[in-house]
């Protein structure tokens, strides 16, 4: 783990490879002089829904390509479902469904024909159940009515659904979905969310890369945040949130008194917005030092008329911005 807070979310893990669907050690990829992926240690527990976060161009897709054996790693090791990658790629990949950097299909073939072709490419896929599996996969993503339509007539969202259907062609132990909700309408996004939940409930590990934080916040149990080729935070979602700042907000007409009490407790109060007679005092709130109820008691004891008292954890978005920087520029 390099840079940022290191949070491991494998309590009581006997052997990392047994309990992990994905495990990387010092994984790096260099393109020319640029380190696209810089020594990352990912640990995706089996059965988790793992959010892989990061701004555009931070190395998420490159990492996914290495996981699937599409690109070779410059350095480091990968274990997928307990097997070494790329050495055991052929044994592992049939159990892995993937959507990598946008769906891609033959435009002159129908959706079903495209799936048929991709399924035929997998030697392990039984041909006897092919039609049935294609039908079920299309049904699952709500494309049954467009199965016979040529892909060139599909909208972006439909192609995206077809890409997900491809990942679902066989029962998978692990799904790797790169930006699965790209181009989907709000309804489609909801469907993908419930699809991911139902897959996870069925025991499939789902690895979702995304830059949509709300998305990740809603469906994921674990997450890692990547920035400029490095992993800056990793762990369960609640761990990640907790690692962020928690803010205390006190609404009271006795601003001065409240400041005094908070300062005595070792906090650094700041005076916020004045709303009529009530003032707002805020302070960064270190969780371990003093509990909220003690602060409340101290304030009341100090004669502060409490009209509002709020302990607010940061959202994932605030955490994300804090970890990856505010700027709009694509990091190099």
């Amino acid at each position: 783990m390099t840079g940022g807070p290191a949070i491991q979310a494998l309590p009581g893990a006997t052997s990392a490879t047994e309990t992990s669907a994905i495990e990387t050690r010092g994984l790096s990829k260099r393109f020319g002089r640029q380190m696209a992926v810089d020594s990352i240690d990912l640990s995706v527990p089996r059965g988790s829904v793992f959010g892989f976060l990061g701004p555009n161009g931070c190395g998420k897709t490159t990492t996914i390509r290495m996981l699937l054996g599409l690109a070779s790693a410059t350095n480091g090791s990968i274990t997928l479902l307990g097997q070494d990658i790329p050495a055991r790629l052929r044994d592992v990949l049939p159990g892995v469904g993937a959507l990598v950097e946008g769906p891609a299909f033959y435009p002159f073939l129908s959706g079903a024909a495209n799936l048929h072709r991709l399924d035929t490419a997998d030697r392990h896929a039984p041909s006897a159940t092919r039609r049935q599996r294609i039908h079920e996969a299309l049904d699952r993503v709500g494309l049954s009515h467009a199965a016979g339509k040529k892909v060139k007539a599909y909208s972006l969202g439909m192609k995206q659904r077809l890409g997900i259907a491809n990942a679902l062609l066989a029962p998978r132990e692990l799904l790797i979905l790169d930006e699965p909700t790209n181009g989907l309408d709000p309804q489609g996004t909801r469907e993908v969310r419930s699809l991911v939940r139902s897959l996870a409930a069925g025991g499939t590990t789902v690895f979702v890369s995304s830059h949509l934080l709300a998305e990740v916040e809603q469906i994921c149990t674990h997450a890692a945040v990547m920035s400029a080729g490095r992993i800056v935070a990793q762990g369960t979602l609640s761990d990640l949130r907790r690692a962020g700042h928690v803010q205390l907000k006190v609404i009271t007409p006795d601003v001065g008194a409240a400041q005094g009490v908070l300062a005595r407790l070792g906090l650094e109060p700041a005076v916020g917005r004045q709303d009529g007679a009530d003032g707002q005092v805020t302070a960064e709130f270190p969780v371990d030092a003093v509990s909220p109820e003690e602060i409340a008691a101290a304030l009341v004891g100090g004669g502060v008329r409490l009209r509002g008292f709020l302990v607010e954890g940061s959202t994932l978005e605030e955490r994300f911005v804090a970890l990856t920087g505010e700027g709009f520029e694509v990091e190099q």
Binding site: L70, L93, V100, A104, D122, N166
Partner: peptide, 17 residues
Amino acid sequence: LGTLKYLLAAPAGRVRL
């Protein structure tokens, strides 16, 4: 077309493909 990555992830096997 971008379909190469999906064929390889299927997995088709590079030599076989």
